[in-house]
Simulated assay, not measured.
Amino acid sequence: MQPSTVTGARLSGDRRTLLLDTQVPSGAHACARKLKAVLTNPMTDVVRVQITFTSPSGDRASGCTEESPATVKVRLPEALGDRNVIVDNYTLFTADGAEPPALRLCGELGCTPPATGCTAASYDQALMAIGAPAHTYRNSEECDGKWLVLDISWRTGPACAGSTEPGCSSRLGDRWFFRARKSGWEPVIRTSSGGCQDVQRKEPAFPTSLCASLAPLSPSLAPSYPPAS
């Protein structure tokens, strides 16, 4: 088995021993045995590590129904240097911007997320913030660097990617308003209405210049649920 999550990473004084903090099954008996971390590939520009253990937690009768923290270490063939660390293929750590001996846990946008602003990369972060469906289209953007409006849509119907079938020509869509935060674009409200009324009821500081000319979403793009208020 692999841990449900890896919460932290740090280095020993010689920067060759990597200590990884994880969450593993726990209970009245031994629920995580043979916990170990190994390098899965030779060190290149990144260090790839896999953490494994054995556990009876798949059987609820084992009593291993909780989780507790555990730390595992792996010895590197040389100092980590400026390499990033990838654990179990999806958890990424970097020394860049971290306070030694700790490494910094990177987010969904990687270790150097795009700056919040009126850029395509930043708009992608906004889509992630609202959990937009896969293959979402950005139909339009209104942005001044501090506030953002995104009109988005996604195709409906089975297996629509690249299809010209009639059932794939329809779309569902939303209009989202955002404010800039240090961590990225933060959603303010979702609506299909035109103008500023909905957003300024929720956030009076939202600039009229970005919303006054907005038309209501067309029926083919309007969401199938009531607008947020």
Rank of each mutant, 00 (worst) to 15 (best):
M1E: 10
M1P: 11
S4I: 13
T7S: 15
A9H: 02
L11Q: 00
L11A: 00
S12Y: 00
R15M: 03
R16M: 08
D21S: 13
P25V: 09
G27H: 04
H29A: 14
A37K: 04
A37V: 10
V38K: 12
N41D: 10
T54S: 15
G58Y: 00
A61G: 14
A61M: 12
G63V: 02
C64D: 06
T65S: 06
E67P: 05
S68L: 06
P69C: 07
T71S: 14
T71C: 05
K73S: 15
L76M: 02
L76T: 07
A79V: 08
L80D: 03
L80R: 08
R83E: 05
V85F: 03
I86H: 05
I86S: 10
V87I: 14
V87P: 09
D88E: 10
T91L: 03
F93I: 14
A98H: 03
R104V: 13
G107R: 00
G107C: 05
G107L: 01
C111V: 05
T112I: 13
A115S: 08
T116D: 00
G117F: 11
A120Y: 09
A120S: 13
D124T: 14
Q125M: 10
I130M: 03
G131V: 06
P133I: 07
Y137K: 15
E142N: 12
C143V: 10
C143Y: 05
G145V: 04
G145N: 07
K146M: 11
K146Y: 10
L150T: 03
I152C: 04
S153R: 04
S153D: 13
S153V: 07
W154F: 14
W154P: 01
C160R: 08
A161D: 15
A161T: 12
C168V: 11
C168R: 11
S170F: 15
L172P: 05
R175T: 01
R175S: 03
W176A: 07
S183Q: 14
W185L: 02
E186F: 15
T191H: 01
D198A: 15
E203M: 06
F206W: 06
T208K: 15
A215D: 11
L217T: 07
S220N: 15
S224T: 09
Y225E: 11
P227G: 01
